[in-house]
Amino acid sequence: MIEAQPQNKRAQRAASWWPRFNSGALTWGRLTLTLHAFLMYLFLYGPIFVLVVFSFTRDEFGVRWTGFTLEWYVRMFANDRLMGAAGNTLYVAFVSTVVSTIFGTLLALAMERHRFRGRTGVDAVIYLPVVIPEIAMAVSLLAFSALVLEFIRVVTGEVVRRSLVTVIIGHIAFSISFVTIVVRASLKHFDRRLEEAARDLGANSWQTFWRITFPMILPGILGGALLAFTLSLDNFIISLFLSGPGTSLLPVEVYNKVRRAVTPEINAISTLMLAVSITLVVLSQLVQRRR
């Protein structure tokens, strides 16, 4: 994601610029900016905080603080349907992450290492899934899967329904792009002379890749994989359109419940999902910044 290593000279000048430029009467501007930033972080995290707090309330509508309880978590873990959905979600995330990480890393290597005709076209195809609205991708995959399943029925006479397989296919399709982008960023800093040095010291190209290239871009690959995993866990729109009967996924379950009413049980599920995501993002930041 965005590089947060601005330890260059200009950035430091920027940091020191404020107090000097802003001496005297102009501190109002500085105060306003600080206040604004404070309010923005409140805006970003207030609702999340409220959600977490109200997952522990005794209030059965989940919107009022009437005392502490863990009842909703107990109920959630006892709910077979929810736990099944959670299991499905993890399974989908795991498979789609493995596949998209491999494919995305290969694509990133191709794009950063080679100059070839049609490279801009490939670039566009890689970026498109990231920029188009998810619903457009979801409906097109739905229509396509309907066509393919119908074809299978006509040819083999067997009725195949949408299932976790279709969901996984869809998740891989959008994850590939994200993995490619993250791995490419880590390849940009890679000094190709290191590979030449390895060849020079007697390593063949296979040994060079596994002993030099791979360990060095591993943080990028792990970062991409964690991103793919998180996106898959959180994905709701493509899952909604592509999951078949009886194959429910956690975000879709939450969506179906949330459309009805606020309940403390949803608060509890949501809190759990938030905790997983935040753990993953912190993990990914640690992985990518450890150099």
Binding site: R193, L194, E196, A197, A198, R199, D200, G202, A203, I212
Partner: peptide, 28 residues
């Protein structure tokens, strides 16, 4: 190919492997 030649190179910016210690670099 380079890995079958009886020559070795010292590179302009050294191209030391950053994820290996000095000893591991030399032992490569």
């Amino acid at each position: 190919p380079p890995h079958h030649r009886p020559v070795n190179t010292v590179f302009q910016s050294y191209a030391l492997f950053p994820h290996m210690t000095v000893a591991q670099n030399v032992a490569f």
